[in-house]
């Protein structure tokens, strides 16, 4: 890897910064390559989640009543809060990228910390929701009971959900399978992202980004916004199915 770098025949704009890799002709080329590569990686992520969205579309059309009933067991308050939290974290990350671009180290550190905190808040709320599902026997495979949909109990102060026939009630397991697969995969991406956030925070505090070598932050920003976009679709698809019924 540390093969002798060849002196470039001619360099169009003076000296090269130390962080330019030897096989790139110019810094612009290195930057473009990095963000293009990141976008291609995000395409693979689109297709990765795409498989689950296809499954969702098929089963939602087949088992619509089960999807409505399953969706109504989710807390709209927690879901909306989480959406707000994630959008805000996307905003703080965008600000982090801006601070890095304009070489504001303090602002960058603050933005990264805020993003990290908001990410943790998201996962905290998510785990409260998961725990609730576990208590209610709504975890497919491990701990599942469709009877709550056949004989729904009225929450205090609310009308009971309409009961489902037994076969449709059992299909709520498909809804919850997709719910856990999609939100779980999303949460996994969040956890990976937070690991990277911690790494960037340490680097930022050490001043590693002060010299303008911020490709990592910019590309991480793209990743974090992508995770946000996935949630932007998951939220209405999972939480907001016919709330009026």
């Amino acid at each position: 890897m540390d093969s002798p770098t060849v002196a470039l025949h001619e360099s169009s704009h003076g000296e090269h910064p130390s962080y330019q890799r030897h096989h790139f002709v110019s810094m612009a080329q290195q930057k473009e390559s990095a963000s293009f590569g990141m976008w291609l990686f995000l395409l693979t992520e689109i297709m990765f989640f795409g498989g689950m969205f296809t499954a969702y579309l098929v089963y939602r059309n087949w088992y619509y009543p089960a999807f409505v009933a399953g969706s109504h067991t989710l807390s709209i308050v927690l879901g909306t809060t989480n959406t707000g939290v994630l959008i805000t974290s996307s905003f703080t990350m965008a600000m982090g990228v801006w601070c890095a671009e304009t070489r504001r180290r303090g602002g960058l550190i603050l933005s990264l910390i805020l993003t990290l905190v908001l990410g943790l808040a998201f996962l905290g709320i998510k785990s409260v929701e998961y725990h609730e599902k576990w208590v209610q026997h709504h975890v497919p495979g491990l701990r599942f009971d469709a009877m709550t949909f056949v004989h729904p109990k009225a929450e205090p102060g609310q009308a009971a959900e309409p009961p489902l026939p037994l076969d449709m009630a059992q299909h709520t397991e498909v809804y919850f399978s997709l719910y856990f697969a999609m939100t779980g995969m999303h949460a996994l991406h969040m956890i990976i992202g937070m690991g990277l956030l911690v790494y960037m925070l340490i680097q930022a505090i050490r001043g590693a980004y002060d010299n303008g070598n911020i490709a990592f932050i910019e590309n991480f920003g793209l990743y974090w916004h992508f995770v946000d976009i996935v949630w932007i679709f998951l939220f209405p698809l999972l939480y907001l199915i016919s709330r009026h019924q």
Binding site: I76, I87, T88, F91, A94, I232, F235, I241, R243, H244
Partner: peptide, 20 residues
Amino acid sequence: YVLIATALLLCTALTVAASY
């Protein structure tokens, strides 16, 4: 960025309201 974040939060409220 502030403008976009505000728009996103407003849209979130809108989509929740629309579902009712």
